[in-house]
Design a protein around this nucleic acid. Sequence first.
DNA 1: GTGAAAGCGCTAACAG
DNA 2: CTGTTAGCGCTTTCAC
Lengths: 361, 361
Amino acid sequence: MNRFISGRRKMRVTLKDVAREAETSVAAASATLSGKPSGNMRISEATRQRVIEVAARLGYVPNPIARSLTTGRTGVLGLVFPYVDAFVDRNPFCSMLMNGVFTEAIQDSYNMMLYTVRDGFWAGKHKIDPRVDGLVLALPASDEPLLLRCRESSFPCVAIVCAPQPDPVMTVNADDYQGGLLATKHLLDLGHKRIMMLHGGDLVSTNQPRLDGYRKAMQDAGMQVTPDLVVRAGFDWRPGFEAMTTVLERPQSEWPTAIFAVNDLCAAGAIRAIKAKGLSVPEDFAIVGFDDTWFSTTTQPMLTSVRMPIKEMGALAARMLASEVNGKPPTERHPVLPVSLTIRNSCGASTQVPALEFPES
Amino acid sequence: MNRFISGRRKMRVTLKDVAREAETSVAAASATLSGKPSGNMRISEATRQRVIEVAARLGYVPNPIARSLTTGRTGVLGLVFPYVDAFVDRNPFCSMLMNGVFTEAIQDSYNMMLYTVRDGFWAGKHKIDPRVDGLVLALPASDEPLLLRCRESSFPCVAIVCAPQPDPVMTVNADDYQGGLLATKHLLDLGHKRIMMLHGGDLVSTNQPRLDGYRKAMQDAGMQVTPDLVVRAGFDWRPGFEAMTTVLERPQSEWPTAIFAVNDLCAAGAIRAIKAKGLSVPEDFAIVGFDDTWFSTTTQPMLTSVRMPIKEMGALAARMLASEVNGKPPTERHPVLPVSLTIRNSCGASTQVPALEFPES
DNA sequence: GTGAAAGCGCTAACAG
DNA sequence: CTGTTAGCGCTTTCAC
């Protein structure tokens, strides 16, 4: 009997079993079953059939661990996620990104290992895990040790929503600059002059281009961006709330009339602050967010927001990584995906959105 | 030079390198570094130090693949998720569950492999992957082939939000029955008599106990549950919308005055249908949902909902699995976690919720 | 055409 | 107390 217990795991049928049963060599069995007649090795149709039949009969499943040890490939891609609790639970951004990465990875027959990172357990602590062939890094900062480590050792990886990286690191980004431009222009077009930006701080790569886009639009319109118009908030709800609360403590004459928030959660926080003061959106303040996930439809009023193709970005990243790992490096190694503006009710512009909307993703 | 290219991956420092450099045997090096003086093997403090020093100097990192091959253990847990696109993106249930599982797994120094399953690629296609030591199965149905396969081969696994399973499969559930009871009683207490349940269909395990709880509460209150009060909807937004729309096409005299929806998404759909008819909640219909994630706070009005400790359930599942895998089988193999009722504005009951609420998870 | 043999990097027996 | 040896299951030269 060739099934026995080792440790606490039932041993499965091995290639040796198949070879013995099919009265041939392990090598031949391997060659047939892995489909690649390696080297100058050809298998006669007779043994081929026998091996295949026996393998099926015995229920042989190759052991990916053993295979990895010899081939140096695992067929697994890693996804590194730095985001924590509340942020993940509430921001569809994360699940949409994951969704994209996974959908594509499955298509390319890759499995996914997920590395999340939380308080006190940052990516810096992560070593490159040889159990994955490559990594998708959704790290917001471009100086993460893990990212640097990948670069140094030329480990296949693609950084997503992260500042441009030197080769061989690939990147996938949305056109944040254009997004900032679009958002601000929209507010400008509606006649606003004092437009404030609630930004996310310089630890997150996507912040700067959005801010640059904002500045450019303002400048093009001949508006001056005084320091009081650029207020530090963050990419989550609470910092948006707190920053806006602070702004509303200024004399009313110094208030902006419109706000461009660095993302939707931040915008939602700002809206809460505004409501808490007994004021309202869009009557007292117009506000534009960024991301345009279905979250944007849950606020009151629903958010006008810059749309990023999040799921597509995840899928693209996975596809690029799979190509790289398979030795077909993608030609476009730093794609920047286009953004657009979804107009809802938070700016007072006439809406394009049907009254009854089921966000599909 | 012991670093060279094999295939396309830079070979890392191996144990052999360390042993040679430290002038000792591979076995000794292994024993020191893995911390377990295996068998009757003890290492002299001298070589111990030397090995450790050399390992550090060479930047030795053990290869988990090789280790797995010999030990039969991988240090990886798998999470199987059947849910698809829109549902995942919009329902915090999924990310909260993941969050719980991951947080706990990390604490126990396990890595996580994620298997998602989507249209045309069901769990039935999954083989048990020997690269994981155990599986958390978030499969809603109890007859999933993968689940059966685990049971047959005694592969360590815990099914979450799934009907009770025969040993050795472990399960983690919320008290759905009690939830149905609580929700319905709340509506009863508010004076409702015609209470309808929008249920999710019998393909999902949690549906039945919720329905049973509903029936029991009605029965205890002396209300008759006529067939027209039990309407098939689903666990997503659209089926809730469609089912409610159908109900509203009945003569008004046959309308319910209150609704218990099988989950929050379903409830939200129902609310949309009600609004689409020009009616409102809670004035025309009281409605209770199930899950009580922060999603419940995004509807208008905010949902009264049965709270499940979702994240805790995920964490518990991971912890139980880790124990099992480590040879310390948990004594409680089928925990049922308590639920409670969070009262908001969808039933017209006086609310307990602060006006300005930042859901933390 | 085919099979024997040498590893991949590590651990766990077993002698010394 | 230590080192030698034998695999884990698979792929891949390389002789036959």
